[in-house]
């Protein structure tokens, strides 16, 4: 630890009292419990400098991190039915929505944006965990459809960044129906031959993981992210057993074949950019010397000799059936 934590922190604590340690000055790592100076945390992309725990990012921070310097444009999302069941629990759903909307400035738990990553134009949709736990209802389903349509229109890959507790209970069965809808949406992208890449962040669960989140052509996850269908608590209460260490974490999913890679937050942009370029700029087939059409029909026709500097070796031997064509063998 540096002098700050040893020296300054107790002083500040003494001055302002426990309760009032301002959020934006110090943050406690939820994993290792260390106090982290906010600026340090920010510089470290909200990854704990002590234990490498990836703290949750707000939606905007995440997008700033992924897009190239020129940034991104949010797109206008279509209206959808706000409260189809006229639902109320302890509170009216419409009131919950109102609160979440005024807190986030967005209409629902998703935004769709487009811009460039690694120079490749992409459409990116991101779930906002701060908005009712990133839950998926009609508006989210509609937005995923919009994102997919935009990707197809722009012939751009679709990047999906997930953080969600699952389906939005307040919309009942209609939120469940967003699972097939969202899969139809991402399949439009796939049918157009465009890459669909998912970035699974903490947490990704329930109806979201069991639909579009798990259907990425390529799936990346952040270290330590909980990615699951049923929550650990539910499982524990059902089977009355202690769950194994690391259960449902990103690394566990990697071992179990569910994601392609676990990528550190500081490497996420570069990794995404590399994959996008491999897929979207596959390179011209003309890199190899073209073979005159007359020799194509003859199997193994063109006998090019490239021996990689090992002059002692002859050109590759070919099947005896082709010796006539190969000539030099």
């Amino acid at each position: 630890m540096n002098w700050l934590s040893n020296f300054v922190r107790p002083k500040i604590s003494a001055m302002v009292g426990k309760k009032e340690v301002p959020d934006n000055m110090w943050r406690k790592c939820p994993e290792c419990g260390q106090m982290i100076f906010h600026r340090e945390l920010e510089e470290n992309l909200y990854v704990c400098p002590h234990c490498d725990h990836h703290l949750r990012l707000h939606m905007g921070q995440r997008l700033d991190l992924l897009f190239d310097g020129e940034g991104y444009q949010k797109i206008e999302l279509p209206e959808s039915v706000s409260d189809p069941l006229k639902f109320r629990d302890r509170k009216k759903y419409t009131d919950r929505l109102k609160d979440a909307r005024s807190a986030s400035g967005d209409n629902d738990a998703i935004i769709v944006s487009h811009g460039k990553i690694g120079g490749v134009p992409v459409v990116a949709a991101i779930l906002n965990f701060d908005f009712m736990g990133g839950s998926m209802g009609l508006a989210v389903g509609e937005a995923i459809l919009s994102a997919a349509r935009l990707a197809v229109l722009q012939e751009a890959p679709l990047i999906m960044i997930t953080a969600s507790g699952g389906a939005r209970m307040q919309e009942g069965i209609l939120s469940l129906m967003q699972m097939p809808r969202s899969i139809l949406a991402v399949n439009k992208v796939k049918e157009a031959g465009l890459p669909y890449i998912t970035i699974l962040t903490d947490p990704t669960s329930g109806g979201v993981s069991a639909s579009f989140a798990m259907r990425g052509d390529i799936a990346m996850a952040e270290p330590g992210a909980v990615i699951c269908f049923a929550g650990a608590r539910v499982i524990e209460e059902t089977i009355h057993e202690k769950l194994p260490e690391g259960f449902q974490r990103a690394e566990y999913l990697l071992d179990h074949g569910m994601v392609d890679m676990v990528v550190h937050r500081r490497d996420m942009r570069d990794t995404l950019a590399r994959v996008l370029n491999l897929l979207c700029n596959p390179g011209p087939p003309a890199h190899v010397v073209a073979i005159p059409p007359s020799t194509i029909s003859a199997k193994n026709g063109a006998a090019k000799t490239r021996n990689g500097g090992n002059k002692k070796n002859a050109a590759p031997h070919r099947r005896s059936t082709d010796k006539k064509d190969a000539g030099k063998d």
């Binding site: 390529i218 179990h256 074949g257 569910m258 994601v259 994959v275």
Partner: peptide
């Protein structure tokens, strides 16, 4: 860029 897993049981 290695890609992992069978999406069913293991890597």
């Amino acid at each position: 860029t290695p890609l992992a897993g069978d999406r069913a049981f293991a890597e």
